[in-house]
Amino acid sequence: METISMKIYRILADEIINGTLAPGQSLEEIALSERFQVSRTPIRQSLRELAARGLIELRPRKGGIVISISLDELADMLEAMCELEALCCRICAERMSAVQKKQLELIHVQSQECIEKGDEEGYLELNKKFHHLISVGAHNKCLTDTMDNLRKRLTQFRAAQAGVERRLTVSHDEHDAIMAAILASDAEKSYIAMRNHATRLSIHVLEVIKERQAVTE
């Protein structure tokens, strides 16, 4: 179950991303406590999460300041993530163990079952496991840590595409190509399949963010 602090984090993150909370705007603990009718403890936890994702700059004992993230900066981060995920997938195809490959297959099957049931939340949870297993399967801690840090910063931006028609089906079809290449230990096809998957997602995210920001201007 999602905690109060995470619910507040998601609301504030959405408002920062769509421009409701402008760059340079102050997020005061007292004001936020009054707004959400909670104590300052979950507010502090929410602000720390926003800071960890690079959305605000914390100010000790006060709150935070909304950081300016331009579309160009977002595009740069998404481009970097595309290349890192593709590289990770290439290495994974060469290094993933037989046990990990079987786990990947099982996650993929379970994901299809979620789509058939209309279980979006379940699918998204399995999606995280699918990508995490590929990351771990590369057996390169430095690469995995770098990806994890960048993924944290991009999580809320990527979530902006929620509710798009057929997105889970398209995602699953792309996962199918990725998995097939990994199981075949084909490094180049794995790289291309993951890069295509990540690039489509990145392009879509940028389009959604542009539309959101245009509405608030």
Rank of each mutant, 00 (worst) to 15 (best):
E105D: 09
M147I: 15
E83K: 12
L133E: 04
R59W: 01
Q100T: 01
R153K: 14
C92E: 09
S68L: 11
D76W: 09
V99P: 00
S135R: 14
F157S: 12
K152C: 09
Q110A: 15
E85V: 07
G63P: 04
K101F: 00
M81A: 05
A177R: 10
R166V: 10
K128L: 08
R90V: 08
E105M: 09
L183S: 05
A162G: 02
R90K: 15
T155M: 06
L168A: 04
I115N: 02
A93L: 08
K102Q: 12
H131M: 07
M81H: 11
V99Q: 12
R61Q: 14
L154P: 09
M179V: 15
L133H: 05
E121N: 08
I134G: 03
G63T: 07
I107W: 05
K141V: 10
I91A: 01
H132L: 09
I91R: 05
A86M: 02
A177S: 05
Q161Y: 07
A98L: 13
E83V: 07
R167H: 04
Q110G: 05
A184M: 02
L78H: 08
Q112S: 08
Q100G: 11
H108Q: 11
L58Y: 07
S111D: 04
K62N: 11
L124Q: 13
V136Y: 03
E83L: 14
M96A: 13
Q100A: 10
A160K: 14
V170Q: 09
D176G: 03
G137P: 06
R59G: 00
A180Q: 13
I115Q: 02
L55D: 11
D145L: 12
K102M: 08
L106R: 14
T155Y: 03
E174T: 01
C89H: 01
A75G: 10
A138E: 07
L106Y: 05
L104Q: 07
S97K: 01
L143P: 00
A93Y: 03
H175V: 01
N127S: 15
R167T: 02
K129W: 08
V109R: 10
F130T: 06
S111T: 09
Q156P: 04
R90Q: 15
T169R: 05
E113N: 10
V170W: 09
R151T: 08
M81Q: 11
E113P: 02
K141I: 07
